[in-house]
Every structure is written in C-alpha cells, then in structure tokens.
Design a protein around this nucleic acid. Structure first.
Lengths: 148, 148
DNA sequence: CTACAAGCTCAACTTAACTTGAGGTCAAGC
DNA sequence: GCTTGACCTCAAGTTAAGTTGAGCTTGTAG
C-alpha cells in the first residue's frame, strides 16, 4: 500500500482547478501550507485539496480570503486536521452561513414578496429591513463590503 | 397629500446607508438613475432606495455590480418600475439565487457531513464534488470569481 | 548527460469597487 | 448679501485577489 503521496503545486492546481499562481498566493496569505523538498519545491499534503475546495466555495458566496483565513486559524498548523478540527471550523462558520442563507432567501423571495409594496413605504419593505439589520450590527466584526 | 418628494444624494445616502461617492459610482455604472435640477444637482425617485437595497444585499452574497447591472437591464429606463418589472428581475435571478442557496447549504452542511471523510477520498468528498460541478458548468455564462 | 517541462522568486500589472482630494457651484439661514 | 454646508466634476489613490513576466533552478525521460 503506497503511502499517501504528497502533491506538487501543479498536481494540486490540476485537481483543485485553481491556478498555480493562486496557490502561491493562498500560501502567502496563510490559507494553505506546504513544505519544501531539498530542491526548494513545494509539496502538499492531501488536506490541501479540502482547504482549497472550501476556499473556492466560500469565496463564491462572498466570503473574503481574510475571513476564510481567520476561520482556518482554528485548524492546527503542521498537523493534518482531524474530524474534530474541521468540526470546529464548521461551528465557527455556521451562524454566518445561516445568516447568509437567510439573506439570500429573502433576496429571492423579497423580490417576489415585495412586489406589492411598490417601494411606497420603504421602511416596511422586507429588503429595506434586511439592510437595516445589516447596518444595525455595524460595530463589532465587520465583514464583506468593508468600507473602511 | 404631498406629492412623493424627490430625494437628494445626501438623503439617499442617509436612508440607504451608502456613501454619496458610492451613489455617484453606481450611477456612472448605470445601476441607478437621476435627473438634474436647474442647478445641476441630482434628484432621485423613491425607487432608487429599492435599487440600492437590492444592490447591497446582492453584493453581500457575492454578486458583482456588473451582474446586478445586467439584471437591472430588465427594468425600464425613465419610468418607475412596476410590480411586473420587479417580477421579471426576480425570475431572472431566481435560478442563480437558488443555486447559491444550495451552495451555501452544502458548504454549511458539508463541513459537518464531510467530517467522516477525512479527505482521504477527495473524489467522494461532498465539497470536492460541488467544486467539480462548478468547473463542469464552466463554459457558458461565467459569473463571480471570474478568472479572466 | 542533456533537454525541457515544471518550479521558484519577486516585481509589476490588472480589475472591481470604491474613497479621497482639489477646485469650484448652489441654496437656505441670518 | 454673505456665509456655510451640501453638491458638482474629474483625477488619482486604495484594497482585494490574483495574473503575468523575467530570470534562474530542478528533475525526469530519452
């Protein structure tokens, strides 16, 4: 039984579908780790594929690399994450994800539901209210569309 | 009954929670419209608040201004959108929004569900599969995280 | 052993989405 | 009638997330 082979950048790029330059970039940002061969080339463990997959999906729904990196802080350095580790990350994100899902649903349904309001009474518009909630939670951890 | 007052940039900024400069920017990008007073100042109709609310929420979930602008194309120029108009926009987006919701759910649940896989068999990982589906639909309308 | 694809680093360029600043105009209150 | 805060335009700066390119090294297949 061959030991689980380590992956080169090229292989990771191929399997994950992101460019080599992006992998370098993620590494520079602390999102993924590698060790080097004697010839200074990167080698990745298998878990990098999971990380990259998560990065891509999270980004797609509007989570910034910085936030992803922050979430990844809960994962151990220099040790392949266990089920427990991933679990922690999961719970760390769950609220945020739930919120985003709710937001999307309201956007989707709001566009339909809101049709009656004609924006005559903005303050009662579901979309408007959602916005208010967003700015209401303004202080504290500000994420996404940060306007400095 | 006072006629529905038109709004100045400052008022829209205040009520919508976005900066005046952002409103200028949205206008330059064709996302919102205004007409000018004799003194060359912008005046907005009420519907601008709805538009801005939608812009903000859509952005928050990772939809680009370009895509939002494209969706807004279905809205009439120079006429306050009717329920029908907003309805069209709603259906235009519905699929995309449904997809995104599904994605978020999978990200959320995947982080939990995936715990057993330990990423030993990447090809069977729910997250990984989601990724594959994404790149599989690669051709055609490419949106979000466009890598040129 | 040598060719050449794949890696490496580092700096510079790109796009999106705004913000900031300079320099000038408008309008409402005193 | 003048002052002060809201507006205007246009150019340049900023941050995120990468990409591109130059110049140099590695490693594998013939």
């Amino acid at each position: 039984m061959a030991p689980v082979r380590e992956l080169t950048v090229g292989q990771v790029a191929m399997r994950s579908g992101v460019a080599v330059s992006a992998l370098h970039f993620y590494e520079a940002r602390g999102l993924i780790r590698s060790h080097r061969t004697s010839g200074n080339q990167r080698r990745y463990g298998r878990d990098v594929l999971r990380r990259v997959a998560i990065i891509r999906v999270a980004q797609e729904v509007g989570i910034s690399l910085a936030d992803i990196a922050a979430a990844f802080q809960s994962l151990p350095e220099e040790r392949t994450p266990t089920r427990e580790d991933w679990n922690l990350l999961s719970t760390a994100w769950r609220d945020e994800l739930d919120q985003k899902i709710a937001q999307l649903k309201k956007l989707r349904d709001g566009l339909t539901d809101c049709i009656g309001c004609g924006c005559m009474s903005i303050d009662k518009c579901p979309l408007r209210n959602k916005e208010d909630r967003l700015s209401a939670q303004g202080s504290g951890a500000r994420r996404l569309v940060v306007a400095r």
